[in-house]
Every structure is written in structure tokens, then in C-alpha cells.
Design a binder for these strands. Structure first.
Lengths: 350, 350
DNA sequence: CATAGTATCGTAAACGTTTACGGAAGCCAA
DNA sequence: TTGGCTTCCGTAAACGTTTACGATACTATG
């Protein structure tokens, strides 16, 4: 039952050597034929390809990697775990999808490196790097000070970050235009008469929190307003965090009339918390947030900033390739650092 | 600026050979010391470990994999893409987290294999397998007929599936106890007087849809009721799908009084759709679903089935290890096939 | 015909490990 | 002393590729 002969139960290919013997050609020529090298007769190449196909030969990647000193793998490091889960998981999935399509074109394999909640991200990356696992790395969820940058720089591994950091080692990065979002949000709310505006940011050291709060503060100042420190709400980037924010927000004596959410995963919790306090989004409190799979299905619909995550992923991948010697010629014109614009999708919540 | 001497800017380790020379020991002994083999003096082992640490030596995995014929990598195949995004992304992240912790104990590296939305999952897996990428594979999102099972079985790659399928090649699997969920849901609703109960299922060939609908039908029959074919709603597993279901549901002339949701990501969309039709969950329509990061923050709170995703991941990993020769002795007592129970968390929606 | 050039291919040396095998000590008992 | 264990270590052969180099045959050119 286990040896179900499927007709073409071809024996195990032992390697390129056996394939060469079968063809009565030298193994060098076979390798060249397989890899599209020029020094090989087209007729023999055809024979080789054909035999490889029919015999089910596939190159052993360990041997290949050993010889070439490159693995053909790109790692995309994300974060997961109970603290974070609920965050931008769908966000990363979509970006990943875009990245994937680019690398597939170059026969590079993309894998997701998900750091367990039990392990320190730095240690995790150290392990991955030590293994020589990937030829290139994409880092996301960058922190204000991020030791991972230095680790990769020291090891001279090509990498790009989705997000900025004070730790700058000259690597390329892409980031969402949180400045633009902050500015547009504040402008919009102020123009609608709001004078007491709250903002949210992650509870931890994520870099975007600093960028966002600073820009909100600056834009408010431009309007002659100031950001009350009690109106800056830190929370875990998940529903529970949103709920908590709502509790604190509604408990304030001088309650702000509007709030801007930097994280998209807190929205449902925030809505719930507000409702329990009898505060209706869009009527009693203006809310502007980030688009997510459910933001347009909330009630009231969330006024939110959106972007094409897939396109972002494509740009990310291409910028990384531009820094890799083997592909530099193809993508050299890529800009190394880019703020990705977001567009406002009006809803019913502000 | 780029060559920032960090004090211990140790030169590149060339390999185990150089390490051996530095210690004036043979490379064989060094290897044995590093790998914890018995045939080595504890004193020399200490010296080797120390030198490796201080010189920053790490074994080249390509060489190791080539020699050992194993990569030390486990792949967890998930799905992503616009059609699916919004589905159980957080679901998979949490399961992954559990899986990760187990493999880390055995120095196995776990990576997520995310099939792009552009590529056929079968082709994708074929590529991964051909590369000899992983020593073991975890498959999720199993379909009614799933060619991936046969592919892996033919290549004799150890694997386990999170989900069942009609395609059974004797591999171990774990699956959520959808039968139990269906039964408990129907029992609960019937006992509360509902006679016209609707169910949802994925729009595509996911196996769980069949299992779930069949069991709902059977349980209803036990109560002398029948499942109206018009009360079986198929949808994409995302918010838009939930919204669509609500539209269809509320448009029916003989509207059912309750609905059971097999997918957790459709809930927000469903709520929105119902509200637009003036149907209030829990009052005008009973809803039972699956727990998700936001289900307890919806209004009304979702009555839902929950489980420990992390523990599920741990069990999944251990069951896979039990099928791998190198670890079989440690985990042999694992049961090969298991329905993972889910518990009901009462909410306000039914 | 001699020569240079080109197209094609074979040979063999890497790449960095792990491990089977055997050898050299040291120890103990007979 | 001899022989047999045990403990430790060195040697060298794999593992499956890629690729620099050189060899061969053929073509074109003078």
C-alpha cells in the first residue's frame, strides 16, 4: 500500500553524475547545460534538459549552495506572538505577497521568518544569520533603536527595512508616510473645528510611534494648537489595546473630540470601548485610522488611510535586489529610500 | 564610517579547518566536539567551544546539509493573497508560534512558506520540495482533494497536515473538531427554540466546509429538523464574504433565525451587513462563530468557539517529529491523528 | 597549407562539513 | 610481558555541485 506504483515510479536520481552517465556526457557539460551557460551546443542542451525532466532530476541545493556560496533564499522577518497577534498580520501577508512575486521572477525563494514570542528578535536574527540561511533579508517592525541593523551590517548581508530607525547603517529602507498621514489627519480634523485631538501610538519602542507623534505635534503647532500629553495613548497594537484606550479616553474630564489611530488593529476594540461609554464614533468623537480588511465594514465605516500593500511589497523587493551584487545591474535605478504615500478613504467616523 | 571598528572586529572565520589549525587539533575532533559527539575529551571540547565562541565561528549549513543529507529546516506552508487575506492570518500566526517553540528545542529552523496569490499551491510546493528545502513540512488549509499530499508522499518527505482531506496517504494530521463545533452549535440553538438555522462555509474546496455542513445537517436531523439548501451560504473567508452573506440572508423571504459561522474572519462584515438591514445580532438573529482577536470586542460580543492555537501548534510539531526517523524515539507516543476540541465562549450574539 | 579563432566539451579542483576507520596511548588483569 | 579494553584523536573519503582550465575538432583566413 505504501509502495503504490504510479506507473512512472522512476528510481531515485542520485545526482548530476548519474544523469551525466545516462547521457554519456561529462558532468561539467550537464551542469552548464542545466544552468544556461553559453558554452554548450544547443542540441546537447536540449537532450540534457529532456533527460533531466524525464528522469525527474533536480539539483541538490545544498551542493549548489556550498559551491556557489549563496543559498538563493531571501528571508522576510516578521513578528508574531500573543502580544503582537492581531497587529498587522494581514498587513504583512499582503506585503509578502508582493515581495514574493518579484523574487519568483529571479528564481529566488522567499520565506517568512517569524520570530517566536518566546525569543528575542535580535537573538532570533542572529541565529538565522549565523546559519547563513539567506542571501538577503527584509526586516520589518523596526524599532527606535534596532540592533538588528548593526548585526546585518556587520555580517555584510544585503538587507532592506520596512520601517525606519534611529539606528542607521546606510541600508535602504521603505516606510509608510506616517508624516503625511499625521499631517493630513490633523489638517482635516482642525479644518472641521476640532481643537482637542488625541493620538495613539504603540506601547513599545516601534519607531513609527515617534515619527507619528512628532509630526502630529508639529502639525498641530502649525495650527496654533498643542498636543496635550494626556492625549497621547500608548497601547498594545491589538483589540485589547484599543479597548483600553477607549476606557482611558472616555474617563478624561476634558475629553478630546477627535482621535487619530496609527495602528489598524486596535479599531474594533476602540469602537467597543467607546460604545460601552455611550460615545458614538463620528457623532460624539471623530476617528481617523488606517485601513484594514475590516475597517470598511465597521459601523460607522472608518475614515482611514489606505495603500496598496502589494505594490509596497514589490517596491521593497526591487530595492533589496538593487543592493545585491548579482542583481544590481537590473535594478540599479531604484531609489534607496522611500516614503510610501497613503490615501484617505472617507468614511463615517469623522 | 562603514568600517566602524567595534573593538572585537574579528576577522572572517573561514571554516572549521581554520578553527582546527588555530587550536592545533584535527578538524575531525573539532567537528565532534562541536556536535556533542562522545568520542572527545571534555577538556578539549571546552577549548573548542570556547575558541569557536571567541572567534565567532559558526558552521556553514550548506556544507553540513550536503554531508548529512538533511537541511535542519521545517517548512510550514500557509496561504495568503488578496482572496484569502483577512482569513485566518492571525490564526496561522498563533499556531506558528507554538510550532516554533517545539522545533527550536531541537535546533530545527522553522520557516513559513507563503504561497503567493499568483501561483498554484501545488506548483509552489513542487518547487519547494524539488529544492530539497525542508526535512519536514506542515501543510495547512487542506482541500477536499489535495494533490499536495500525494506529492509529498511520493517524495517520501515527512509531513503532517493541519486539516483533513479525502486525499489520504496515511500521513498524520491534526484538525479542529468541526464536528464537535457543529453539534454543539446546533444543539444549543435548537434548545433555544430555533428551527431554521443557516450555516456558512468557504466558497472554495476547503475540506472543512464539507465536514462542517455534513455534521450540521446530521445534528439537525437528530432533532428532526433539516438544513434548507438555501440556508447554506458560501463565501470568501473575509469581511466582504460576511457582508455578502448578510445581504443574501436578509433578502430571503423565509429568513432563518440563527446562523453558524465556520470562519472567523467574516464576522465583522456579517455584522455590518445585518445592521444595514436593521437586523440586530442576538436579538433578531442568533449568531455563533469562531473566536478571533476581535470577536470579544464586537458589539454584541460574539458567542464563539475558542481553542488554544499555540497548544495546537505544539501538538502539531510534536506529531510531525514523531514521524521523522531522527526524532521518532522521543515522540513516538504521539497520537497520529487528532481532533482538536474547541470550547464555547458565551457572548451576546445568540 | 599553416594559423588563428571558435565552438564545444572533459577533467579535476574546489566549497565546508561529517563520520567510518584505524591508530596511539593508557590502564588493568592475568 | 602480554593481551585486551577504553579513551581519545587524526586521516581521508565522501556529500553534489560549479567552474577555471585545457583539450579537441572544426572553420575561416591568409
Amino acid at each position: 500500500m505504501t509502495s503504490r506504483g504510479s506507473g512512472e515510479e522512476r528510481g531515485k536520481m542520485k545526482g548530476i553524475r548519474e544523469l551525466a552517465e545516462h547521457l554519456d556526457i561529462s558532468i561539467g557539460t550537464v551542469s552548464r547545460a542545466l544552468n544556461g551557460k553559453p558554452d554548450v551546443n544547443e542540441e546537447t542542451r536540449r537532450r540534457v534538459l529532456e533527460a533531466a525532466e524525464s528522469l525527474g532530476y533536480v539539483a541538490n541545493q545544498s551542493g549548489r549552495a556550498l559551491r556557489k556560496g549563496a543559498t538563493g533564499v531571501i528571508g522576510f522577518m516578521m513578528q508574531t506572538g500573543s502580544e503582537i497577534t492581531g497587529q498587522g498580520d494581514t498587513f504583512f501577508m499582503s506585503v509578502f505577497d508582493g515581495v514574493q512575486t518579484v523574487f519568483a521572477r529571479h528564481k529566488l525563494d522567499l520565506v517568512a521568518l517569524l520570530c517566536s514570542s518566546e525569543e528575542d528578535p535580535n537573538d532570533y536574527l542572529k541565529r538565522v544569520v549565523a546559519r547563513g540561511f539567506a542571501d538577503g533579508i527584509i526586516l520589518s517592525a523596526t524599532r527606535r533603536h534596532d540592533a538588528r541593523f548593526e548585526l546585518l551590517a556587520k555580517r555584510k548581508i544585503p538587507f532592506i527595512t520596512l520601517g525606519r530607525s534611529l539606528t542607521d547603517v546606510g541600508q535602504p529602507w521603505l516606510d509608510l508616510d506616517f508624516e503625511g498621514m499625521a499631517e493630513a489627519s490633523i489638517d482635516r480634523l482642525v479644518s472641521r473645528g476640532h481643537k482637542h485631538i488625541a493620538v495613539t501610538r504603540p506601547h513599545d519602542d516601534m519607531n513609527l510611534g515617534y515619527v507619528f507623534e512628532d509630526q502630529c505635534r508639529a502639525t498641530l503647532a502649525r495650527h496654533g494648537l498643542r498636543l496635550d500629553d494626556r492625549h497621547v495613548f500608548r497601547s498594545t497594537p491589538n483589540e485589547a489595546g484599543g479597548y483600553q484606550i477607549a476606557r482611558e479616553l472616555t474617563a478624561l474630564e476634558n475629553r478630546p473630540t477627535a482621535i487619530v489611530l496609527i495602528n489598524e488593529a486596535i479599531t474594533v476594540g476602540l469602537y467597543r470601548g467607546l460604545e460601552e461609554a455611550g460615545v458614538r464614533p463620528g457623532r460624539d468623537m471623530a476617528i481617523i485610522g488606517r485601513q484594514s480588511p475590516h475597517s470598511q465594514f465597521l459601523s460607522p465605516r472608518l475614515t482611514s488611510f489606505s495603500l496598496s500593500l502589494r505594490d509596497l511589497g514589490i517596491a521593497l523587493a526591487e530595492s533589496l535586489l538593487a543592493t545585491m551584487p548579482a542583481f544590481a545591474d537590473i535594478y540599479e535605478e531604484r531609489s534607496a529610500r522611500l516614503l510610501w504615500p497613503m490615501g484617505l478613504v472617507p468614511g463615517e467616523s469623522d
